[in-house]
Design a binder for these strands. Structure first.
Ligand SMILES: [Mn+2]
Ligand SMILES: [Mn+2]
Ligand SMILES: [Zn+2]
Ligand SMILES: [Zn+2]
Lengths: 158, 158
DNA sequence: ATTGGAATTGAAAACCGATTTCAATTAGAG
DNA sequence: CTCTAATTGAAATCGGTTTTCAATTCCAAT
C-alpha cells in the first residue's frame, strides 16, 4: 500500500461514480500533483480486478468506472450533456436472471442503460428530435434497402 | 447508389447481427476484394445515421453494429467465446420506459446486456469462476478500502 | 536502524481501433 | 456524352488505452 494508492482509492470511492481515468486523474492531482495518469489507470484496473469496480461503456468512446457498492443497477444516460442517473430495479434484475437461466447462461454482469436526453437537455430541442418508437414492430429487410437508397440521397453529413 | 454500397448493404443485412467493421469488411471482401475498410466503416455510419443500424458496445473494446429490424431487445453475451444471443422482453422495455418517464428522460435507445458465460463455455470452468451475486446488497465504503488493501497484497497479475 | 529484493511508480512510447484527409474514380442528371 | 457532385481506396491522423522500463518506494527480515 503506497500513498499514491491510498489517495486514488479514497478519491475514487468518495467521488460520484462513472468517472473516466482522466477525470479521476484530475481529481487525484488536486491532492497530489505528482501522481501520474498511468498510476491512476493501473489502480483502477486493480480495483476492478479485485471486484470493487466495474468498467462501463456508455458509448461516448471513453471507459468509465462504476463503484460496485450496491446491487446491480441501470443508468439513464444523456447523449447531450453526458450526465448519468442511476436507478435500481429488482424487477428487471429478476427478469434478466430468469432469462439467463433459461439459456443456461451464467451471468456475471448486467448492463442496463437508457440512452437519450435528460430533462434539462430536452428543453429547447423538443420538436426536431422525435422520440424513437422503442416499441415498434419489425420491418422487412427489402423495405429497408429501398428506404436507405432514398435516404442516402440526402447525403452523409460528415 | 454505388456497387460498393450495394454489396455492403446486402452483406450487412444478410449476415447475423453484431458484426464489427472488420468482420463485415472481411465478408464484403469475399464478394469484392477491392472494397476498402474505410468504405465499410462509412457505409455502416450511413446505415446508423438513417436509423437502420445501431452501434453496440459489448465491452470488448470493439464497436459492433446491430440491425434495427425489430423491436428493442437485449443480449446474452459470452465473455469467453464472444457469442451473443438475442432476447426480447416487452416487460423490460416497459419498465425502462416507465423509469425514464419518471425522471423526465427522453429515451432514444435501450441497452440491455447480460455479460457472462454461455452454456458451452461454462463446461470445464464451473468451480473457479463463481457467479457474481447479482442481487447482493450494498457494502460500506470503509469495508471496501480494508478489503482492497488485503486483496492488493496478492499483486496485480497483468 | 539498515538492507536487499520485490512491488510500484512516472514518463514516455507503443498500441489499436475509429475517423479523417485527399487525390482519383464513378454515378447519374442534363 | 459531358460535367459536376458524390463516393472511393489508401494512407495518415486521432485519441484513449495499455505497456515498457529505469528509477523509486515499500516492507519484511536482519
Ligand atoms: Mn452506476
Ligand atoms: Mn441484437
Ligand atoms: Zn443532458
Ligand atoms: Zn461462450
Amino acid at each position: 500500500m503506497t500513498s499514491a494508492r491510498e489517495i486514488i482509492f479514497r478519491t475514487f470511492f468518495e467521488s460520484e461514480s462513472h468517472l473516466s481515468v482522466e477525470e479521476l486523474h484530475e481529481r487525484v492531482q488536486k491532492v497530489d500533483p505528482s501522481i501520474a495518469y498511468s498510476t491512476v489507470w493501473r489502480t483502477l484496473k486493480l480495483i476492478c480486478d479485485v471486484g470493487l469496480g466495474e468498467k462501463k461503456y456508455f458509448g461516448d468512446g471513453v471507459v468509465r468506472y462504476d463503484r460496485v457498492t450496491s446491487s446491480p443497477h441501470g443508468h439513464l444516460v444523456c447523449r447531450e450533456c453526458g450526465s448519468t442517473e442511476e436507478f435500481f430495479s429488482p424487477e428487471i434484475n429478476r427478469l434478466l436472471q430468469d432469462r439467463a437461466d433459461e439459456s443456461g447462461h451464467l451471468p456475471q454482469e448486467f448492463r442496463v442503460e437508457v440512452i437519450g436526453l435528460c430533462l434539462q437537455c430536452r428543453q429547447g430541442k423538443s420538436q426536431e428530435e422525435p422520440q424513437t418508437n422503442l416499441r415498434a414492430e419489425s420491418t422487412a429487410v427489402d423495405d429497408q434497402v429501398i428506404d436507405i437508397r432514398r435516404s442516402a440521397r440526402g447525403g452523409l453529413k460528415s
